[in-house]
Design a protein around this nucleic acid. Sequence first.
DNA 1: AGCGTAATTGATCGATCGTACAGGAGCAAG
DNA 2: CTTGCTCCTGTACGATCGATCAATTACGCT
Lengths: 228, 228
Amino acid sequence: MASRNGVPKFHRETAAVRRGALIAATLRSLERYGHEGASIRRISAVAGVSIGLINHHFRTKSELIAAAYESLALGLQRTLRLRAAADRDTPPRERISRFLNASFGPDLLAPSVFNVWLVFWSMILHSPQMRAVHDRTYRRYRAILENLLGALDESGEARRFRLRPAAIALSALLDGLWIELSLSPGTFRPEEAIAICEDWVDALCAGAFVHLLNDKPRTVRSQPRNHT
Amino acid sequence: MASRNGVPKFHRETAAVRRGALIAATLRSLERYGHEGASIRRISAVAGVSIGLINHHFRTKSELIAAAYESLALGLQRTLRLRAAADRDTPPRERISRFLNASFGPDLLAPSVFNVWLVFWSMILHSPQMRAVHDRTYRRYRAILENLLGALDESGEARRFRLRPAAIALSALLDGLWIELSLSPGTFRPEEAIAICEDWVDALCAGAFVHLLNDKPRTVRSQPRNHT
DNA sequence: AGCGTAATTGATCGATCGTACAGGAGCAAG
DNA sequence: CTTGCTCCTGTACGATCGATCAATTACGCT
């Protein structure tokens, strides 16, 4: 019918292309509407398709959400990795500086990005599917940090340190600053966040973090210390 | 009718008492059911009251949620402050250690607490009411940290440092570690998180953080440094 | 003891949710 | 041009949501 008018009612796409478009629409819907954007109706409206199409390409809603989570996480990691190593022969310490700058760039600090992230996080506790995505992507993220820090550790510019806890600490510092900047951008400026991280890396190089040093493994003190 | 049987159908409470009970029920509901716990029906079921009662004591749902947010935040802050200064004459450095230990105690690290927190956070972007509560409570939280760090700064045990960015950095480190521990408790142990924070404070005392030093105010570098 | 106040109940409203499903339609192959 | 695959549409259904409101009832006060 409609084809007789020369105006098709809709476009047919291959399954792969349509799946990608729906994932992108999911992220856009979450950006705009926050938690209420995680609805089949909102997503289909943003994507410009009918309600039923989503359940044709994704068996359930949570499957689509999980796919969107993984897509966003991997995309951000790719961005960070690319910016950290622009040239082939960037020295290790500067790669980290580039990574820090990219972490607090305007595209990462957009409040919408954070809102999407929050929606995903809030689903982890109750959805094993989301937990699986989180564990997988977060392991990757820490691996990237361990790579960056590992190159620094072997460059001779720094006192030798233990890689794993150092990556954990730096990722926590990055996440904490990123979250606070996203929640209330007026509290401090992105440049301050970068400076705080740079200071941390410099202190790591100087061997200022006793528990992270590699030369003498020591047990961790869990009780408050006694300063007399 | 029911009173004739000697079995009252319900208890009458003063407005203040009932409001407090409803706030507590809200937090319990959010702990159990996550984001879906933020529903009038769930909350009233947890509180053991009827659906309509909530709208009798709170004009709208978001008013109740905001009250619960403020209640939880202030309660946690009170707990932390009390544990940080157990004795009157606890030295500044040990107060901080106590604060760190309390921050990663089992009651703060319960996954349910984090889930409640996430629900609140996800509402900040779209609800000015929640944003107001967040700004207020987070300012208080940073003030507590500034008090603790300020006492350390004046004790003479540390190189003089700028209070505000130091509090921002420490709170970010605390938050980041707390979040990661809550999201996936198996990644590292609470004792490691405490050690990372202790290291940070020690490095602060040693003057290892250049941008935080007080003696010479310097501009913050926002471009990646050039290591040649 | 009875009365009045206000705390409490529960049915009800319109809206929105996720999923299922039957039929319409684009597009390539024959 | 016709056929057929499957991508796609849109209605339908049952459940749940926040908010309203008239009716009910506990409990202090006189």
